[in-house]
Write a protein that binds this DNA or RNA. Structure first.
Length: 342
DNA sequence: TTCGTAACGGTTGAG
DNA sequence: TTCTCAACCGTTACG
């Protein structure tokens, strides 16, 4: 794919990459602020993220307990696994007059599939037509009961469980507005009691504080803060998402990184690129009085048990996701973000 | 003013 | 290797 050359600037002056999720750190921050009682509209203004996005992220968090973006791209796991096809074939063989909806019910009743991965009636019909045609359409293709069923052409694993993988899709970061858009937070939030100052993220969100003299002109791939290799690369939702490191197209070489920022003092899974990057020149959280009090944030970020999710989605991936998320959060918190000035 | 959400244009990755 | 398609993304605009 084409690497995004530039981020875009939204109406609030925030930088975003169209089509890509906000950095995890921002997502986490949105939830943190919300849990601190900050209104979504204030969060939107403060983080310069559209209120729609804030609303989405918070809604998603409330619904799933996850701040992580969903899995982008790819295809849903196929439900017509060889096992399902085999079962359908057996049902049809036992009762050639069986309707697709009956087969569907039977798949559910027999536990071959569950409600999440049971094929649709149309899918079953397609299976009957394409894969078991000689059984489903005896009038046309019946060649006798001894026909050896064709081998399922699909080489996927016969796993029925349908997962809804969520991935960490951290992407670019706030780098400041475009030339002329560098409206510092100090203008919109002049008080030292602003969310930014309270949480110590002014440099993070303040283009004037973080953008170079050329403002927002760097290509995305040149953004020192955009480097998804800095994100957790281990399993997400039970899926080894090690490729997640490579799916960032606008990464950078370590040399370029060091050219913009001191070596990240944080562990690699952290979003040092997001919060560090350019901001590192202006913001040295470690060892400062703005040391991040992550205890309250950890408290604030206690994720809801996915009780409501269990009924909506297969649970285990989400649990793993939340574990992943917790690690991500720990990573974020390990940035020693100065979320509290006190 | 605040908030929820549909529409939109974009990215992504499995098949 | 390339293409397709359906998932997701965040922004914008509207109510």
């Amino acid at each position: 794919m084409e690497q995004p050359s530039y981020g875009e600037v939204n109406q609030l002056g925030g930088v975003f990459v169209n089509g890509r999720p906000l950095p995890n750190a921002i997502r986490v921050r949105i939830v943190e602020l919300a849990q601190l009682g900050i209104r979504p509209c204030d969060i939107s203004r403060q983080l310069r993220v559209s209120h729609g996005c804030v609303s989405k992220i918070l809604a998603r968090y409330h619904e799933t307990g996850s701040v992580l973006p969903g899995a982008i791209g790819g295809s849903k796991p196929r439900v017509t696994t060889p096992n399902v096809v085999k079962s359908i074939r057996e049902y049809k063989r036992a009762d050639p007059g069986m309707f697709a909806w009956e087969i569907r019910d039977r798949l559910l009743a027999d536990g071959v599939c569950d409600k999440y991965n049971v094929p649709s009636v149309s899918s079953i019909s397609r299976i009957l037509r394409n894969k078991i045609g000689n059984l489903s359409q005896p009038g046309q293709h019946e060649t006798g009961g001894g026909v050896k069923p064709p081998a399922p052409p699909i080489p996927y694993s016969p796993v029925c469980a349908y997962s809804y993988p969520n991935t960490i899709s951290p992407t670019g970061a706030k780098l400041g507005g475009p030339p002329g858009v560098g409206v510092g937070l100090s203008r919109a939030w002049p008080s030292v009691h602003t969310v930014s100052n309270i949480l110590g993220i002014r440099a993070f969100m303040d283009p004037s504080a973080i953008a170079g003299p050329e403002g927002y002109q760097q290509k995305m791939e040149e953004w020192p803060c955009v480097n998804r290799t800095s994100f957790p690369s281990h399993a997400v939702n039970g899926i080894d998402r090690s490729p997640i490191d490579t799916d960032i197209k606008y990464n950078q070489s370590p040399s370029s990184l060091s050219g913009y920022m001191p070596p990240c003092p944080y562990s690699s899974p952290s979003q040092c690129g997001v919060y560090g990057g350019n901001y590192g020149h202006h913001w040295q959280p470690q060892g400062t009085g703005l040391a991040h009090n992550d205890s309250h944030l950890h408290t604030a970020m206690n994720f809801k048990p996915p009780s409501d999710v269990a009924d909506r989605k297969p649970p285990s991936p989400l649990i793993k996701q939340q574990q992943q998320q917790h690690e991500a959060l720990s990573s974020v918190h390990s940035l020693a973000l100065p979320t509290s000035a006190s």
